[in-house]
Design a binder for these strands. Sequence first.
DNA 1: CGACCATTTGATATGGATCAAGCGATGTGG
DNA 2: CCACATCGCTTGATCCATATCAAATGGTCG
Lengths: 218, 218
Amino acid sequence: MLTESTLHNAPSSRSLRHDAPAHPYKFTEPRAMELTGSCMSLRRNAEIYRENDRIDHVYQVISGTVRTCRVLLDGRRQIGDFYLPGDLFGMEIGSSHTFSAEAVNSAEVTVFKRGQVSTQMWALLGRELRRTQDHVLMLVKTAPERVAGFLLEMAERIEPGDEIELSMPRQDIADYLGLTIETVSRMFTQLENQSAIALPTSKRIVLRNRAALRRLNS
Amino acid sequence: MLTESTLHNAPSSRSLRHDAPAHPYKFTEPRAMELTGSCMSLRRNAEIYRENDRIDHVYQVISGTVRTCRVLLDGRRQIGDFYLPGDLFGMEIGSSHTFSAEAVNSAEVTVFKRGQVSTQMWALLGRELRRTQDHVLMLVKTAPERVAGFLLEMAERIEPGDEIELSMPRQDIADYLGLTIETVSRMFTQLENQSAIALPTSKRIVLRNRAALRRLNS
DNA sequence: CGACCATTTGATATGGATCAAGCGATGTGG
DNA sequence: CCACATCGCTTGATCCATATCAAATGGTCG
C-alpha cells in the first residue's frame, strides 16, 4: 500500500513561467521539484506537473487541495478536477499529461513512481473516469444546478457535517463549472436568499437545506 | 485477440419501454438480447444495455453506430460518446452502468464476457478516460467551436478523406454537444456560408477547409 | 400524391457573459 | 494607529449567444 514518506522538500524556485497567457490564468509561480517517493511542500499555485510533461509519477494529496487544468489558446481555462487530502491524482494514460496539476493553496503531496501503485492503477483510472463522466453531465446543466451540484459534491467529499470550507477561490470554481466568477457569486447569494445555504464567510458554506440543493441538482 | 462471432441474432421484442420521458428522448424500441460471444443485430434505437444494468460484458461495434447516454429527470439527455465500427464500448467501472447504450441506426455488435478482453481493459479504460476529458473541454467552448470540433473529430475517426457521412441525426449531435438541434443546424449552415464545409445532403459533409475548422476549434 | 419525420429558417426571449463599480478584508508604509 | 493600496468577492447595468417557439422546407415511404 501507499505509505507517506517523511522526506520534506521545499519547492524549487527554478523554471519560473513568464509566458503564461493573460486572461484568468496568469500565475507566475515556481515549478515543484519532482522527487520520487518524497513528500513535496507546495506553495499556492505551484505547478506539480505541466501539460505535455512525461507521465511517470502518481501523486497523493496529504494536505491542501490540488487542481488539474488545461488552458485553451485564448486563455480560457478548464479545471479537470479538485483533489483533496487522501486523493490520488496524476493518473492519465499515454506518454504525456494532457492536464497540468497545481496546488490551489499551500499543500503537501507525496510522489510515487507509477510502478509503486500499479495494483491501484485500475481502481484509480476507474474513479477518474467516473468523475469525468459526472463532470460532463454537470456541464450541460444550468448555472444554479451546477453550483448546487458542486456544493453537494464538495460536502460529500469533505465531511459528513453540514458546514464546509471551500479551499479554492471563486475563479477556480467558475473554471471547474464552465461559468464566470460573477455567475458563481450570484448563484451563491441566490441560494442564500432561498436559505438553501448560509455564507458565514465567502469560503465557509453551511448547507442549510440539502433537499433544496438536491432538487436543483435535478 | 477479439474475434467476430458468426452467430447472428435478431433483436428480441420483449420488454418494450413505455415509460420513457417526453422531451427529446422518447423512443419505444425493443431491448436488445444479450448473448455472450455472439453477434447481435440491432434495429434503430434498440437498447444494448441500460443505465443501472449490471456490467458484465464488453461490446465491439461491427457495423453501424452506437451511442451511450444518460437522461436527467426532466428529460434532458446527455450523449456520452459515439462508437463506430471497430470501437469497443461498455467499459465502465463499478457494478452497474451509469450510461445506457443504444444503436443509433441498424447496427451489428459483438458481445464479449469481460474476462475475454481483460488484457485490453487497461487500454480501453484509458481511451475512454481520454475521450471523456476531451468531451469536458468541448462543453466549455462556444457553439461554433463545438460543432467544428465535432466535425474534425468525426472526420478523423471515420476516414482520411474529406467527405464524411454522419450516421447520427441532429438531435444526437445536439445532445452530444450540449446544444439544441436548431443551433447545430445553424452552425452547419454558417460553416457552409464560410465555405468551411459543404452539405451535399444533410448527413453528408465535405470538409472543404480544415484549417478554418481547426481555427474555430481553438 | 399525401402523411410523416428530419432539418432548416425565422422571430423572439432569456440566461449567463461582459463591463463597470462598490465593498470588505488584509497588508504595508508613514 | 491610521491612510491607502491591493485583492477577492459581490452587485448592478447592459449585451449577446443560444434557447425557445413557430413555421417552412425537403426527403422518404406508403
